[in-house]
Amino acid sequence: MTNKETRIISGELMDEHIGLTLAELCQLCQLSAEEVQQFIDIGVIEPLSTPSEGWRFESTCVRKVKCAVKLQRDLGVNRAGAALALELIEELHRLRNRLKRYES
């Protein structure tokens, strides 16, 4: 192992205070701004209502968009279908977690 591999790397924490910019969100989702915009239009993700100039997004939007993209690609559903499936999946996870807490 080289020296490079053993040192401790300090990265940059994204969305530390006020959310991701549209550019950062696109980079993390590996999509173009137009593609991300389509997910905003259909309500898969929502920009934060912050007074700062330009859109800001919660970090959790990345997972949502990536999941929607996968659903579209893998199941052949359209964007609206992916959005619906995503909402139901999230609800399902919330309920499963809640159930787990009550059952434990």
């Binding site: 790397i9 940059e12 970090s59």
Partner: peptide
């Protein structure tokens, strides 16, 4: 396989990302 030693900053939330430039 590649091993990396990474610093997790205080205050991270689920879903946040750490960018490791050049890695």
């Amino acid at each position: 396989d590649r091993k990396l030693n990474v610093h997790i900053p205080k205050g991270v939330r689920p879903g946040q990302h750490i960018r490791l430039a050049g890695q």
